[in-house]
Structures are given as structure tokens and as C-alpha cells.
Simulated assay, not measured.
Amino acid sequence: MSDAIDEVQIRRLFMLLHGMYGNSVLDKYRIGQVDDDGEDVGMKSARSVWLNGLREFPQPIVMKALAKCTEKHKTFPPTLPEFRDICKSLMPRQWTAGTEAPRLEMSEALRSEQVQRARRAIAETRLQREGGIRTSEGIKGLHVLIAKAVGHAGGDEAATLLRLDAMPMRARA
């Protein structure tokens, strides 16, 4: 079953427009001539024109556009072009990648810099996840790590650092 608006829905749309705007809808389209069915020829023609003008929009979009009329057209009913503009604004946007868009290439230096930055970020994340501690390099950094470990174990960090500093260089290696 098609989701496009049909004759029954156009009649309902006009009925709702009449309910919202009163006789200004009728005054806008009726011409005073009635056909064999007793219906105003102008209103019948208007519904036919609106039906053709709104066929491209699914019925839910048309109903949403009708609800939007209370914001955009507070005192007078919209014309068909105004109503179509509201419908267009409510349609989901279709995006397709254009083949003519240029592809930007990255220089080898920039690529290398990006790789290094990513590796550092991965290493930092891994260090944090595993509960590691970052310190300065060398013996001083090692002393800080040992003092922290001793402190966490409930020992005396200061005494441990003094003992480490007092050790000869060969005994440390």
C-alpha cells in the first residue's frame, strides 16, 4: 500500500484546515457554483490541485505540516506553495557522497606523526588500565617508585630512600 496522500486524506486535510481557520478556507476557494453532486466547483478544484501538489509527500509528513501551520500561519490558512514548503522542511534529508569531491591525502611526515601520537595514547591508556605509574627516567625515578611501593606496604619511605642513596653504585646494579 502506498504511503502517498490520496483523495480521502485531502478531504480530511481540508476539513482540518476548515476547523483550524474557519470559513477563511472556504472563502479562499469556493466560487459559488455547484456541480451535480451539490459540491462547490472551486472547493473541488482546490482539493484536486492540492492533491496533485502534495502527492510527492507521505501522509505522515502532510499531517506534521498541518500541525506546523499553527506556528507559521496563525491567522490565515497557508497557500499550497507555503504548505509544500513546510512539507519539504519536514522531509528527511537524503545524503549521498559525491564522486567529484577531492580526496585529501596526508603527507608521510604527518602520517608518521599521527601514528606516533596514536601509539603514545595507546601506551598511556594501557598504563592507566593496568594501574601503572609514570615517573621520570633513571635512578631517581626508580627510587620514587620504590618509595611509593614501600609506603603502600606500610613501611618507612624516607628511610628506604636514604638507604638506597647510601648504597654504592655497584650494589645497585
Rank of each mutant, 00 (worst) to 15 (best):
Met1Trp: 09
Ala4Met: 10
Ala4Thr: 12
Gln9Phe: 07
Ile10Pro: 01
Arg11Val: 07
Arg12Phe: 08
Arg12Ser: 11
Met15Lys: 14
Leu16Val: 14
Leu17Ala: 12
Gly19Val: 04
Gly22Thr: 02
Asn23Pro: 02
Ser24Asn: 11
Tyr29Trp: 15
Arg30Trp: 05
Ile31Asp: 12
Val34Gln: 06
Asp36Arg: 13
Val41Arg: 10
Gly42Trp: 02
Lys44Met: 06
Lys44Thr: 10
Lys44His: 01
Arg47Ile: 05
Ser48Trp: 08
Val49Cys: 06
Leu51Glu: 01
Gly53Met: 06
Leu54Gln: 03
Pro58Lys: 10
Gln59Met: 13
Gln59Val: 15
Ile61Trp: 01
Val62Lys: 04
Ala67Pro: 00
Glu71Met: 14
Lys72His: 05
His73Lys: 07
Lys74Asp: 00
Lys74Ala: 11
Thr75Leu: 12
Pro77Cys: 15
Leu80Cys: 05
Pro81Lys: 05
Asp85Phe: 04
Ile86Leu: 15
Cys87Ile: 09
Trp95Ser: 09
Ala97Pro: 00
Thr99Ile: 12
Glu100Ala: 15
Pro102Gly: 11
Arg103Pro: 00
Ala109Thr: 08
Leu110Val: 13
Ser112Leu: 07
Val115Arg: 13
Gln116Lys: 13
Ala121Ile: 05
Ala121Trp: 00
Glu124His: 15
Arg126Glu: 07
Arg126Tyr: 10
Gln128His: 14
Arg129Asp: 05
Gly131Ile: 03
Gly132Lys: 14
Arg134Leu: 10
Ser136Cys: 12
Glu137Met: 13
Gly138His: 08
Gly138Trp: 07
Ile139Gln: 04
Leu142Tyr: 01
Leu142Gln: 01
Gly151Tyr: 03
Ala153Leu: 01
Ala159Ile: 09
Leu161Ile: 15
Leu162Asp: 08
Arg163Trp: 09
Leu164Phe: 06
Met169Gly: 02
Ala171Tyr: 07
Ala173Trp: 00
